[in-house]
Design a protein around this nucleic acid. Structure first.
Length: 483
RNA sequence: GGUGAAGUGGCCGAGUGGCUAGGCAGAGGUCUGCAAAACCUCGUACAGCGGUUCGAAUCCGCUCUUCACCUCCA
């Protein structure tokens, strides 16, 4: 069983072999923190969360670096306009640092709710200005960059590999179709800024060999990945829209500076669309996660995302989310039933399902197929539990193992505690006791065919958010999960 | 104009040269006092037109349509 990853550089599935045996260094472009996270962020970070989880599950020691961009993006075009974070600060009548920190916390809050594990290192762009300046100095010294009026540009001509990731090797063509006007001080229209001179009143600026200024957008990822993961990293991930220019420029900077391959495997996740068009912060159709979470369980969003492949576009609609929520509920209930089952004599072999799950994950993280394997297993499991002989102890244990591996550890769509959330064990114990009494009363009423009373109990509990099911082994109860 | 991706049954969404994707919704059935849940059965879909092939939804060509990137964006 070998892991295959689709490498955007070369556009083919390749067998994964890390640079250092047993260890994987992965860098994923993090968010620019000037607004709340939306569904697009969710797709990207849930996808790479599963990538990291699967690598760990496969036995690798994974070092996962995901930056926070808290400086440097401009709002209008390539070289003009206001820094987005500074603009947001102006709108909210505060300063950039507060904006960046507020939305950083908001970002992690949303990711936490979707079960996205925190990266090992989450470096800030503003915390790595010296490293970025050093990289620029290196590039100037080696002739790959030049300074004009306090701005430093990367000379694309000096790096023959420019365009290998995006396929944009014809610089004339790139230029002629570009929507941005050309800045005359560049030697070549395709050259990109490494360091920018701070205009009058620019809020975030630092001193550098070229005067007061701030780093260009592409610089931070190169500088920080180099610092924490070395000159060559195993996997670099990010959204597809960043292939060009961002990732292309990262390659140019890093490889020109180090003379070594920058990234071994490039992974790009596809976009989320709403009614067929891309959702984005700059467009006004972004679906804010905090808003979604008021009506949809965060893990249902996670499940919805993982039901499609990370390289496929995902179209958001209420109907699709609803279908996913129902599907996830089914898996939850099956697992709950499994946990409550008592040992019988029947058997069920989980290994074929487990193998199918593993094969799917090893095939470029094919979560839709992995989920299908889990559903098929749930069906077989339910059928087995429906039989009078039930399942014996080893079969039950193997089933619990598989649910834990697939549903909790790797996909992260199920939780260890699928019962009452947020309450202490003592509360849970009290509720268990009370429910036991109620179920006994109802059972007594039913045996006397006093269905009015038994239905009164059932309906009343349902209104209170607790559902009773009469199974072969007697009545069971569960809380209705919040939708 | 250039660079890529894609069009699958009511909806979402995998996949592949011949062998069941899966989920949701729907129909019938089993079980049940009823219900819920669960289980069983039921859909013969791959944009259109040509071509290659014993055989294509899967390969090739053309056409149509959609999406993304070439400003910032996960």
């Amino acid at each position: 069983m070998t892991l295959a990853i689709y490498n955007s550089l070369g556009r083919e599935k390749q067998t994964f072999t890390p640079l250092h045996p047993g260890m994987v260094g992965i860098y994923v472009c993090g968010p620019t923190v000037y607004g709340h996270a939306h569904l697009g962020h969710a797709k990207s970070y849930v996808s790479f969360d599963v990538v990291v989880r699967w690598l760990r599950q496969s036995g690798y020691r994974v070092k996962y670096v995901q930056n926070i961009t808290d400086v440097g993006h401009l709002s209008d075009d390539a070289d003009e306009g206001e820094d987005k974070i500074a603009r947001q600060a102006r709108l909210e009548k505060t300063d950039p640092m507060e904006i960046a920190q507020y939305y950083t916390r908001s970002f992690y809050e949303d990711m936490d709710r979707m079960g996205v594990l925190r990266p090992n290192i989450a470096p800030l762009a503003t915390g790595h200005i010296p490293e970025q300046i050093a990289l620029v100095e290196n590039l100037v010294k080696s002739g790959h960059a030049y300074e004009v009026n306090g701005n430093v540009y990367f000379s694309v001509e000096s790096f023959p590999g420019y365009g290998k990731l995006s396929g944009r090797t014809d610089l004339e063509a790139v230029q002629s179709g570009a929507r941005v006007g050309v800045r005359s001080e560049k030697h070549n229209p395709s050259d990109f800024a490494l360091w920018k001179k701070a205009e009058e009143g620019h809020l975030m600026q630092w001193s550098s060999p070229w005067g007061m200024g701030y780093p260009g957008w592409h610089l931070e990822c190169s500088a920080m990945s180099m610092k924490y993961l070395g000159e060559t990293i195993d996997i670099h991930g990010g959204g597809m829209e960043n292939r060009f220019p961002h990732h292309e420029c990262e390659i140019a900077q890093s490889e020109a500076a180090n003379g070594k391959p920058y990234v071994r495997y490039w992974m790009h996740n596809n976009m989320v669309t709403v009614n067929g068009t891309k959702m984005g912060k700059s467009l006004k159709n972004a679906v804010n996660l905090k808003e979604i979470f008021t009506t949809i369980n965060p893990l249902a969003i996670r499940f919805f995302i993982l039901q499609s492949h990370y390289r496929s576009p995902l179209d958001y609609s209420d109907a699709a989310i609803g279908a996913s929520t129902a599907g996830l509920q089914k898996l939850r209930e099956t697992r709950q039933r499994l946990l409550e089952a008592t040992a019988g004599t029947g058997t069920l072999d989980a290994s074929p399902f487990r193998e199918r799950f593993t094969e799917a994950m090893d095939d470029d993280f094919n979560t839709p197929i992995a989920i299908a394997a889990l559903f098929d297993f749930a069906k077989a499991l339910n059928a087995a539990l429906d039989r009078p002989e039930g399942l014996n102890q080893p079969a039950l244990a193997a089933a619990v193992d598989f649910f834990t591996l697939a549903g909790i550890d790797v996909l992260g769509i199920l939780e260890h505690d699928s019962g009452i959330q947020g309450n202490g064990a003592a509360d849970r114990k009290r509720l268990d006791g009370a429910m036991k009494v109620l179920l006994e009363l109802r059972g007594a009423a039913r045996s006397e065919k006093d269905f009015a009373t038994s239905d009164l109990i059932r309906d009343g509990l349902k209104a209170a958010g607790i559902e009773i099911k009469d199974t072969r082994e007697g009545a069971s109860w569960s809380t209705v999960s919040e939708q």
